[in-house]
Nucleic acid binder design. Structure first.
Lengths: 197, 197
DNA sequence: ACCTGAACACCGTTCAAGT
DNA sequence: ACCTGAACACCGTTCAAGT
């Protein structure tokens, strides 16, 4: 119950517009300059004072979480495709790739996501998307384990961490070939022996 | 051939002292506040002007590389111990752990090391220590491969990347248990099947 | 040859004043 | 209720002036 919330009533038109412009501008700046981009520059290009940005998004992470919303929906859409795949081990692999892309959206994104995943910081706005991803990974892992394709010792959280790491490495301009070798090394780690190439 | 170098002559006493104090102060600040610590604060606590720090260490990475020198020597010492181990697969594992500790020395250290490892930035002062570590990892990997303990597809660079990632994850306060699971997942990835527990 | 401290530019964050 | 722009604190980096 927040007293400053006008319960149920529509926000003023300029407020809605400011929020939309800030989000769009922020996304562009995150894309070009990474998650550490200057918030002052974002506000200026959005045509608002810095304090307006802070009112809408009290922390950098709050802004980041809001911007990621769109991308999260794409991920969910991708899940629908994966589900029709049938083969649970391939589904898991595709899911890991999809997460990796998600983590690679903006340079420097893996860092705050990782920090939010282990909920030491009580409630970062990024904790929610992370928890959703981890839960989804758990489902894929468990399905593949029931089919006998993935070792029993593996947990979804492990592969979430692995995907995040790969995205982090990718962010530092490593060549795709090294990434592929690392990916297949990890796959050899979680697949049952008889599933390995 | 640098004209400003007084070839062969000893540097002035105050220069030597400044350098030593800067290194010691910087190490303390890196330890407490991570590699992103304020260089201004380092200079102030070392009792010199900011420009003096910049003269000695033109970039943050140069300062970092100089501070890491000491730690590198500890690593080499550890290598001597490992060499007496006999078992090449265990030697490799211990070496990976030693690198991991090295990467975890200061919070935020994996990031610049990773950037330097892939020599896109022509010559970061961190490229040299990285190349040394990669070469050493290659030797351990090849020895273990000759003994039939490690898969032929694995390269030292892959495991260097993996160790760096683990250190990065560790830096974000993940619990030790998750790290252990990830470590053993990676081990299952590089060990030959008959070597796995 | 080296050092000092002032100077400049930039950024995050907050606050008094407006509408 | 929301916005604005000034203000404050902090930092990286450079430069003129000193010794």
């Amino acid at each position: 119950m927040n007293a400053s919330e006008p319960r149920g009533r529509k926000p003023r038109a300029d407020v809605q517009r400011n929020r939309a412009v800030l989000l769009e501008t922020a996304q562009r700046h995150f894309l070009r300059h990474g998650v550490g981009t200057s918030l002052e520059a974002v506000a200026k290009e959005a045509g608002v004072g810095p304090a307006t940005l802070y009112r809408h998004f009290p922390t950098r992470e709050a802004l980041l979480a809001a911007v990621l919303q769109t991308r999260s929906e794409e991920l969910v859409a991708h899940q629908a495709k994966i589900e029709q795949l049938g083969h649970s081990a391939e589904a898991l692999e595709q899911w890991l790739r999809a997460m990796e892309s998600y983590f690679s959206a903006y340079s420097g994104l893996p860092e705050p996501l990782m920090a939010a995943a282990r909920a030491q910081k009580p409630d970062s706005p990024l904790t929610i998307p992370c928890d959703i991803l981890i839960a989804a990974t758990d489902r894929y892992v468990e399905a593949a384990q029931r089919a006998g394709h993935v070792r029993a010792s593996v947990r979804g959280y492990d592969l979430f961490l692995a995907a995040c790491s790969i995205a982090w490495i990718k962010g530092n301009d490593t060549e795709e070939e090294s990434l592929d070798r690392l990916r297949s090394l990890i796959a050899s780690g979680y697949l049952e022996r008889d599933m390995q190439a």
